[in-house]
Design a protein around this nucleic acid. Structure first.
Lengths: 104, 104
DNA sequence: ATCGAAGTTCGACGAACTTCGAACTACTAT
DNA sequence: ATAGTAGTTCGAAGTTCGTCGAACTTCGAT
């Protein structure tokens, strides 16, 4: 397990990458769960794919700069990256609000 | 030339499709140009691809529900779909504002 | 009627993506 | 040390995507 996975620098975060990451149903659902700004674990993302596929989607979200993964023992806690959200506040704030709304 | 191209019904517009459409540099630039809410023509989109590729991107944006194409003679005028923007106001308003900002 | 201009559609191509299962790694508990 | 658990990485297979050039359609002008 990667103890310190590749989180891109804030400067390397591109909006088109972020949108591409959001352009998939599974990942959009994951972000919808994360939109409450809390930390979540894998079982919270009710997405019907195998573990390796979920890992892949996590990697896409991570490399886009949207999420941060924190490791504690064998478990992985994932949350939205506050710095990126703030940097792209104009673009992303409404997106997250709409996802929260949709989850309810 | 398609005189009356396929614009999806407002109900069939999905957010994940929209994000997927925005997840490409060329298309994101096109939307950035359109973000002033005015009608534009092809030459306004300073995107370095051939005509057929531009047509392809237009189709993706159209089928995602983001843009509307109006034909006048041989020319095609394209603009953002106000109804979709309003329907997904929470999600899209900030996105467009950020694109305007970036264009300046 | 013919020609040219503006866009679209049609293959085609390689690149990138999604998904899976199998093998691997890192940690925990016994 | 051994076994189990959580998650990642590694091919592989199939699909979708981005791009191009060529052929086609629609319209305007001559």
């Amino acid at each position: 397990m990667a103890r310190n996975p590749d989180h891109p620098d804030l400067r390397d975060v591109r909006l088109d990458r972020i949108f591409a990451a959001l352009g998939d149903q599974a990942r959009l659902r994951i972000v919808a769960v994360l939109a409450d700004r809390a930390e979540h674990q894998r079982e919270d993302f009710a997405v019907e794919v195998g573990p390796s596929t979920l890992s892949h989607h996590m990697k896409v979200l991570r490399e886009a700069g949207l999420v941060r993964c924190r490791f504690e023992g064998t478990r992985c806690f994932v949350s939205l990256r506050a710095d990126v959200l703030q940097r792209h506040d104009t673009a992303l704030d409404g997106v997250l609000r709409s996802l929260v709304q949709e989850s309810a």
